[in-house]
Amino acid sequence: MRHLAVILAVLTLAASAAAVAAEAGAQITVALLPKKKGVAYFTSCAAGAEQAAKELGNVTLIYDGPTDGSPEKAAALIEKWTLKGVDVIAVSPNDPEVLAPAMQAAMAKGVKVITWDADGAASSRSFFVNQATGTQIGEAMVDAMAKDLGTPAGKVAIVTATLTAANQNAWIAAMKAHLASAYPKMELVAIKPCNEDQKVAFQVAQDLMKAYPDLVGIFGISSVAFPGAAEAVKQAGRSGQVLVTGLATPNAMKGYVKDGTVKSVVLWNTRDLGYLTVRVARALADGVLIPGATSFAAGSLGSKPVAGDAILLNNLLVFTKANIDQFDF
């Protein structure tokens, strides 16, 4: 019985290897799913992905996602692509829990599923193109704030996307833990949602500064919350007294970094992230990338390390007045 199982396993492996070999280099379709379509951050990732597809020449790229960031619509897109028979689906899950069943179903149908930008449940994808983990991102924002403040002490507040945003909630958890362990003198006094509306972020930040006159810092932890909060500090004439940091594309923040409202912006090279994702998708379809690999040749990005099932982009960037002009995305 056991022999039979072994033989079967070997046969399946051989068959799949043969299938893979036959496919290698063939035209494939890769679907790239962002958390929310229409956001500058994801648009710049898509530009990088487009570049990789063009370089490879044998990848048809689909870039689509929910314009309102709805997890249900994202899951519906995954199901649609599975039915259409795309070869690889690269998911940036706006809600890992909601998307997991659809991703698992896609894998069961033979579609290669990877995550990028944010990870999903390990059972719902084969690889994760990791620019940084949720913990790393949360800690990087707290560290940037501490460094900008000079003396890491005083009241800080978070302006988040929505109260149900899965990624932001993961970062907040990491930020809370890191604040408690590394900077006990920094006190988190409020977490307020802006409902992904820049105007609301602006008003919430205004209110926070008045309600807590001794506030020293605001984290804007979405690409909408960050510029809104920075604008509020700038208009209140408190640039330099209340520091703002967070995640956003450099183009959206250049003005605030130059006038000193924002000292550092935490992000990674988004074009590179999109580029690497498509490269990984291609390699996976070709059977070149297999579990156990320790490095990955990512075209013009050179060799990227692989840790377990994560391909690391490894370039968490901090944009400051000194370097922000070198980036255009």
Binding site: S70, D95, E97, A102, T164
Partner: peptide, 13 residues
């Protein structure tokens, strides 16, 4: 049952 998740943001809009 379909998405195996219960959350406060479902059915928005």
């Amino acid at each position: 049952a379909r998405r195996n998740t219960a959350k406060a943001d479902l059915g928005t809009g």
